[in-house]
Design a binder for these strands. Structure first.
Length: 241
DNA sequence: ACCCATGTTCAGCT
DNA sequence: TAGCTGAACATGGG
């Protein structure tokens, strides 16, 4: 489910619950349910792939990881919710998610969130400078630099900027870095739009593609970087430097 | 039916 | 000791 844009959609869907009281909270999450029972939701926020259900005192932090899902005003049949929030005549269920109760959002720097109006290009460039020996495919997935970027955005942004996923940060000239950051943000918002339309996969240029939509050459699938995450790229358009 | 994947943490090793 | 790697988690779609 996740990647920043999908979490933003979740936030929008949960907006209707602001001001509402959690009448009952349950699930197999290892949290102190008494901290959220009978509490009112004051805001729904996000940072990267993290969702925050803000109460007056505490914050419920949810991360959907790879397999997480949710159901608003409904339940899945054969799976127990990690977190079930009951309201008068409404409910929210989260499945297979990481759930924590935290005290503040201080640890989350909004200027590193690719979907935030606070996003800061210069800060990202400056952080990248301390990752010279890191492959760009890994740097893009670093949530401290690009919170919200996942494997789809990574692959598409690299393709758009014609950068090889295994290039080291040190090998990339400044204009390439600028282009990559620009495309990253721009594509994240395209992702948001396509996801809402239900047309996300129709717009992929590299991710899970067989053929490059620019040169018609073969797209390579390779496990790259420290994280050994899949990169899809066109070896012709995205030449190694 | 099997394989794979929009993610991250952490134990355990060198 | 610090840095790295693979395991672990766990579901659903192709």
């Amino acid at each position: 489910m996740p990647e920043g844009p999908s979490i933003l959609i979740l936030k929008e869907k949960l907006h209707q619950f602001t001001g509402r009281k959690i009448t009952l909270a349950s699930g197999y999450a290892k949290i102190n349910f008494s901290k959220i029972k009978n509490k009112k939701i004051v805001a729904i926020k996000t940072w990267g792939k993290h969702l925050f259900i803000c109460l007056s005192k505490n914050i419920i932090e949810i991360h959907l990881r790879m397999f997480g899902s949710y159901c608003i005003n409904g339940r899945k049949n054969h799976i127990n919710p990690k977190l079930h929030l009951q309201f008068s005549g409404a409910e929210i269920n989260f499945y297979v998610a990481d759930v924590n109760i935290i005290e503040s959002l201080d640890a989350y720097d909004e200027s590193a969130d690719i979907m935030s109006p606070q996003w800061d290009n210069k800060a990202a460039k400056s952080k990248l400078k301390s990752f010279q020996a890191t492959m760009i495919c890994d740097a893009l997935l670093n949530q401290q630099i690009f919170a919200g970027v996942g494997n789809i955005i990574k692959n598409e942004a690299l393709w758009l900027s014609k950068i090889h996923p295994e290039d080291l940060v040190s090998e990339l000239p400044a204009p390439a870095i600028s282009s990559l950051i620009k495309n990253c943000i721009a594509y994240a918002f395209k992702f948001l739009q396509y996801k809402k339309e239900g047309t996300l996969s129709l717009h992929w240029h590299a991710y899970r593609q067989a053929e490059c939509s620019r040169c018609s050459g073969e797209i390579i699938k390779k496990y790259t970087g420290r994280a050994k995450r899949v990169s899809y790229f066109c070896p012709f358009c995205q030449q190694k430097r």
